[in-house]
Design a protein around this nucleic acid. Structure first.
Lengths: 209, 209
DNA sequence: AGGAATATTTACCAATCGGTACATTAATGT
DNA sequence: ACATTAATGTACCGATTGGTAAATATTCCT
């Protein structure tokens, strides 16, 4: 049922000469830096250390490769997002999201920004499917945070007058704006200042000191 | 000295059969929707109602055409930004920026989002110059707002403990995030909720009622 | 009327795009 | 040993990319 079991590791035939996970990691870096359309197949092949037929045999085509890299992105560099929802208070939830984004978007070991934001923001018609897939990912994050903030409102963590949907949209806007800031050269400390600005005005309860 | 006087309207020879301003407007729409790299020359020519040699004769090349459209964008759809700095209080400055962005980013008569954000966020090396130009535009807006907020701090509008640079970066992040939200389908009312969330926690003085 | 100057149209250019056919290589199963 | 299966490298495909040469059309100036 897991996604990596789609190709059940054949027991016969010439074995694959490269590590699919490592190749996917390299492909992610290229897509992250150049976007879906800006990343050419030669770009990808060079970074992955394979040639086109191997790429197509292993990953299908460019579109499927991209979607696979997004899966990897969500499980690795962007792994902070959904676990952040588990914290006890809305303040802590939002704090972990904002600080996680600051670290990830401006990590010197990775391309700047967020591939889910900049992977296919404005593109030609041929990338419509990928663009919509990324929109769905962003929306899913917003919906998940909204649900968590509704819970916080029910628990009295957030005031009864608060609007969880509006707050979730606001936080997602800040997260996405931080990604843009990172691609413009903002470093981690600068992004953390943005996070702190948001947190200092957060309407939810603060954790006891 | 004005930019439109670079080509001083020749008095001799066959007159241009199209309106450069209208053509630029159409080109802006294409770049806005598809980004710099996603917009092909046939896309642009079809929208502008001219063919390639006319485009090149009138505007130079794709890159120069793009930069011209950005100039138009700053003078028309995005004309709210710099005038917003003139308002009396930081609250009103920020309010006009956020509300102007909400209206412009989600205007049904225009493509969603902001071309300065999504025109060349992640792209191939061949678009590096355009990408850097847009980064410079975004930074210029941030610097201008920062300067205005420093003035507000001096005037006692913002508290002495506030950090104008951090606040400016925060507001720009929200503006850029609103652009991403608009490309994801958010409407004007939803973006105005984001604006209101920011304003309700703004540390500067409120205008007297 | 006849240049001179500029715009438009058509047709084309090399380079690159995503994608693949085919022959070869390297493993397993019998 | 030999057939089977799968991955690799090379060399190619048609379509599209940004950009242009050359011929034609339309204006002003003399």
């Amino acid at each position: 049922m897991s996604a990596s079991a789609v190709t059940p590791a054949p027991t016969v035939g010439r074995p694959r000469a490269f590590d699919m996970e490592k190749a996917l990691q390299k492909a992610l870096e290229v897509f992250w830096r150049k976007g879906y359309e800006g990343a050419s197949l030669p770009d990808l092949c060079e970074a992955m250390g394979i040639n086109k037929p191997s790429l197509y045999a292993a990953f299908g085509n460019k579109e499927q490769l991209f979607l696979k890299t997004i899966e990897l992105y969500e499980n690795r560099p962007c792994a902070f997002f959904y676990p952040a929802l588990e914290h006890a208070t809305s303040y802590e939830v939002v704090k972990h999201m904002l600080c996680g984004a600051a670290s990830t978007n401006a990590d010197p070991d990775n391309p700047p920004g967020c591939v889910i934001v900049q992977g296919a923001l404005a593109c030609s018609e041929s990338a419509t499917f990928v663009k919509e897939a990324l929109i769905a990912k962003r929306r899913a994050g917003e919906v998940a945070l909204c649900t968590r903030l509704e819970q916080a409102k029910t628990e009295g963590d957030l005031p009864a007058t608060s609007d969880p949907a509006a707050l979730a949209r606001y936080i997602l806007a800040v997260l996405q704006g931080m990604a843009v800031q990172a691609t413009s050269g903002a470093n981690c400390a600068e992004l953390k200042q943005v996070a702190e600005t948001v947190l200092s005005a957060w309407p939810g309860k603060r954790p006891e000191l």
